[in-house]
Nucleic acid binder design. Structure first.
Lengths: 236, 236
DNA sequence: GTCGATAGAATATGATCACATTTTTAAGAC
DNA sequence: GTCTTAAAAATGTGATCATATTCTATCGAC
C-alpha cells in the first residue's frame, strides 16, 4: 500500500488561457486544488511527478512549487521533499484567529471605498455560492466563498493585507473542504447577507461582526464534525 | 543620467556557508539588503545583472527574485520588469497598522512560552542593537531590531504569523533605513526594555503596549523627518 | 525472521541553450 | 529639432542536461 505515490492525484484541471505563462497556470491550478482541499495533508509532491501529470516541463512546476512553499501552502522538508503540511489543533486555532484579525481589519478598510457596483458584484458572487450549495459542488463553494471575501477587501485600493490573507486561506484549505462538506445547511445561515446589509448601511461595526461571525461559523462547523480530530496531526 | 542601471548596486555581501543552497544564499542576501534599505524603491532588478554581480548562474537568482516577489518585497511589472515598489503614504500607514495588529497578537501568543533563557537571548540581541546604535551602524540596527522581534514571537512553537510579519518588514524595509538614520537618539528611548520587563512580570497588557509603542515610535520618527514626503510615491 | 548494508532508481539543484517579448538605440522623414 | 520607424541589444521564460543527494529495494549476515 503506497499512499505516498506522487502520481495518483485527482487534480481539478483548469484550462490554460494563452495570456497565462505556463508557471502561472501551474501555480493557479495547484493553488485551486489546495484551496478546495483536493490534495490531502501529508501527500508528497514531486516536480517530475506533477510535470508528467500536467504534461509540462519540470521548470514551471519547480517555480510554482517554490512559490507555494513561500506562501506556506506546502512545506519543503530538510530532505528537500515537498509535502502538504499536516494540521494540528493549535495551528488551526492560530490560523483562524489570524483570519479574524486580518479580515475584519481588511473589511473595515474597504468599507469607505464600497460603491453600489461593488455590492452588485458581491451579490452575484453570493448567488453563485448559493447555487454551488444547491448542487453540492464543494469545490466551487470554497472557491466562490473566497472570491466573495477577496472582492470585498480589494475595494480598498491601498489594500496590502490580501496577500497575507490568501496565505492563511491556503494553509487552511485542506480543511475547508471537510467543514463545508459536512455542514452545508448550517452554512446557509448566511453571514454574507448580513455583511451586504452592513455595507449598504455603511455600518462599520455590523460589517466587522458579520465577517467575524462568518469565519467563526466555519470554525464551529469544524469542531462539531464527528471524528474531525482524526484529521489533525498527520494522517500518516 | 542612467539611475536605472541594474548593475550599479552597492550590495551588503554575506558569506555563503556550505550548507546553504545557492538560491537560498542569493535570497537571504537580497532580503537583507532590502530589509536594511540598501536597495532604493524604483530600482530595477534584472536576473542576469544580479547573477553577474553575485557571480552565480541566472537560475538561483531567478528563484530568489520570484520568492521575493511573492512576499511583495519586489514587484513584477507587466513588462516583466522587476522593481522595488515605491511607497505611498497610504500604503505605509496600512503596513504599519498591520504590523501592530499582527505583532501585538504574536507577542501575546508568545508570552506563555517565554522562558528565562529566551529573555537572556533577547537581552543579548538588545545589547547588540545598542552597540550598533553606538557605532551608527544603520544596517545592523535594522537587522538586529528585527531579530529581537522575531526571537520573541518564535518562542511560541505554534507560531504561524511570523512569515506574514516578515513580509511586512520586507515591504517597509526601504523606509526603516531613513527613519533610523535620522532619529537614533529618540529611538534610544528603548521600548525593548519595557517589553523585557513585561516579559519577566508576565504582564500581558504591558507587553502588548510595549510592542505597539515600539512600532508607533518608528512611525512617529518617520513623520518628523523633514522632507520625508519626497520619498513617498515614486522617486522617478 | 529481523536487521543492516550496498546497489540502483528517483529527485532537486544548478548550468547552459533556444526563443519570444521587450527595451533601447540609431537612423531617417518631415 | 522632433517624431516615427527599424534594427539591435537585453531580458524573462522554458527546455534539456549534468551532478550530488536522498530514497528504495534487494541481498546478505546474524
Amino acid at each position: 500500500m503506497k499512499s505516498s505515490d506522487p502520481k495518483d492525484l485527482k487534480l481539478l484541471m483548469i484550462e490554460k488561457s494563452d495570456d497565462l505563462k505556463t508557471h502561472q497556470w501551474v501555480y493557479q491550478l495547484l493553488r485551486n486544488n489546495l484551496l478546495c482541499g483536493r490534495i490531502e495533508p501529508g501527500k508528497p509532491l514531486t516536480i517530475r511527478g506533477l510535470a508528467e501529470i500536467l504534461q509540462v516541463s519540470p521548470m514551471p512546476v519547480r517555480e510554482a512549487l517554490h512559490r507555494l512553499a513561500c506562501e506556506s501552502a506546502v512545506e519543503v522538508k530538510n530532505n528537500r521533499r515537498v509535502i502538504v503540511p499536516s494540521m494540528t489543533a493549535e495551528k488551526f486555532n492560530e490560523l483562524s484567529e489570524l483570519r479574524i484579525l486580518l479580515e475584519t481589519h481588511a473589511a473595515e478598510g474597504a468599507l469607505p471605498y464600497i460603491k453600489q457596483q461593488d455590492i452588485a458584484i458581491l451579490e452575484q458572487i453570493d448567488a453563485k455560492i448559493d447555487a454551488a450549495v444547491e448542487h453540492h459542488d464543494v469545490d466551487n463553494i470554497s472557491l466562490y466563498n473566497q472570491a466573495f471575501h477577496r472582492q470585498l477587501y480589494c475595494a480598498n485600493p491601498f489594500q496590502v493585507a490580501v496577500p497575507l490573507i490568501e496565505s492563511l486561506w491556503l494553509q487552511l484549505g485542506p480543511f475547508s473542504r471537510i467543514a463545508i462538506s459536512k455542514l452545508e445547511k448550517a452554512y446557509l445561515v448566511d453571514r454574507h447577507v448580513e455583511a451586504l446589509e452592513a455595507l449598504r448601511e455603511r455600518n462599520l461595526f455590523g460589517l466587522r461582526r458579520a465577517i467575524e461571525a462568518d469565519i467563526r461559523d466555519g470554525i464551529a462547523s469544524i469542531n462539531t464534525v464527528d471524528g474531525i480530530h482524526d484529521h489533525f496531526q498527520g494522517v500518516a
